[in-house]
Design a binder for these strands. Sequence first.
DNA 1: CAGTTATATGCAATGGATTGCATATAGTAT
DNA 2: ATACTATATGCAATCCATTGCATATAACTG
Lengths: 120, 120
Amino acid sequence: MNEDPYEPIIQLFSLLAHPARLRILDILRRGEACVCHLQAALGAPQPYVSQQLRVLREAGVISQRREGLFVYYRLADPRVAHLLEDVLGPVTEAPPIPQCTCPRCQETPLSKSIFLVEVN
Amino acid sequence: MNEDPYEPIIQLFSLLAHPARLRILDILRRGEACVCHLQAALGAPQPYVSQQLRVLREAGVISQRREGLFVYYRLADPRVAHLLEDVLGPVTEAPPIPQCTCPRCQETPLSKSIFLVEVN
DNA sequence: CAGTTATATGCAATGGATTGCATATAGTAT
DNA sequence: ATACTATATGCAATCCATTGCATATAACTG
């Protein structure tokens, strides 16, 4: 009748001890991202990404929001952001993902990268 | 040739995402403990405890010191103590393990627990 | 030396997470 | 309605950590 007090913590660490999920969470701690964005960032097939997102969602560490065809995920558990900061350090500038075609990724200023191409 | 920067973190989280290892580390963050002490605390067979200790030792998160027949383990990675504090809170009073027969456990003041038994 | 205690190692068996992939669903557009 | 895109789900196969247990080693005692 008395549950193991370590179990929820073990479940949380298990979620983080996975290459795809850890990368996803590291992206999400910088802000919302759609599935196609994560898919492009990981270079993994879409069903694979959706499956890892489901694991994270059912554990309650992320939540989602639909906008038309696109679903945007974000961190839902502040403990996770805190743990990630402990082991990965503070959030750095999000590296651009050119393959992502969602409207949110398109509205980022492209002029900067174009400029860099020009001078080289 | 370029290693995954997430891999050492994944390895660390994997160590923590395990009931026996997490309990061992939670005990060790309170100070040194011999194998027989951990064995009594976990209620697990000795070879099992030694195996988990080996995993932790080879990962570099604990170190050991031999004293006669007894081997005392302790935390070697401050990151682990920090992560444990994040998820488990600050260290509390170490609960006594009466089954442990190592000299270090015997030298703890037994009068206190005996006293508690008396008043009850 | 043999005997005893504390701890370590090796290894086979098993179970549960991981992965790949086919298919389903949701939403938009024509 | 059909077609198309983004995302989700179901499930079988596989892989890897976990576990149990026999045995080995280390240190002390007589």
